[in-house]
Design a protein around this nucleic acid. Structure first.
Lengths: 115, 115
DNA sequence: CTGGATCCAAAAAGATACTG
DNA sequence: CAGTATCTTTTTGGATCCAG
């Protein structure tokens, strides 16, 4: 193996960076926001995020699934039905989402003045 | 009072998106984290963010300055000295930073298990 | 309906060298 | 010290076409 963990904790990451590892990427936070309290089908997410291309949406959902943040439930029916929801682990991100919402809510007007 | 919505409603952005407009980009949140309670020189930020290239650091600092989040103070001396600090507006982002820190702190170990 | 695969363009990020 | 300038690489976006 090419694993080099000799000086393991040498590069201790800032916790903020840890969170960013999960949340970085252009659409992830918004996806999680819409999933914060309801299970949604792929097509529903698409409608809620009209500016995200199908390819990107698929890609980001896969990444979130891989990180254990969301759950992907496939119903073996025709036509296909796939539902996405937050996992228990994903739920723990809600306070971050909430703070971003609160900030955006308060500062929306200030932003609008600039554009 | 008049509830103006109607035509503007469809352009109305989700507040989370508003926050993301400011914070998106790979390094902004981390930059703000390190500036959360101290004024830092450019070189100090560079040392704290060794993985960010100089170009990106300059670029993101400029964007944050343009958005009114941070203040850039230039001292006309030799050698040059430039200090960055949060503006009052930037201070309002602290709850978001804090939540990301808290989440990262708690889930760092879970993440480490995967890498 | 929920994608996967491919091709191409544009934007963001990274690496490196240089400067007042 | 605090950046620019230039070039290369990676990521993202968009447009199809295809399949179970």
């Amino acid at each position: 193996m090419t694993k080099k963990i000799e000086t393991e904790e040498k590069i201790e990451k800032c916790p903020v960076e840890t969170a960013l590892d999960i949340l970085a990427g252009k659409w992830k936070i918004l996806i999680l926001w819409y999933l914060r309290r309801e299970t949604l089908r792929f097509s529903e997410l698409q409608r809620m995020l009209p500016k995200v291309t199908q390819k990107m949406l698929v890609q980001k959902l896969r990444e979130l699934e891989k990180d254990g943040i969301i759950h992907r439930e496939v119903y073996p029916i025709v036509p296909p039905k796939v539902e996405y929801s937050l996992t228990e682990y994903g739920e723990t991100l809600k306070p971050i989402l909430k703070q971003m919402y609160l900030w955006g809510e308060i500062h929306k007007k200030k932003l609008n003045k600039k554009f």
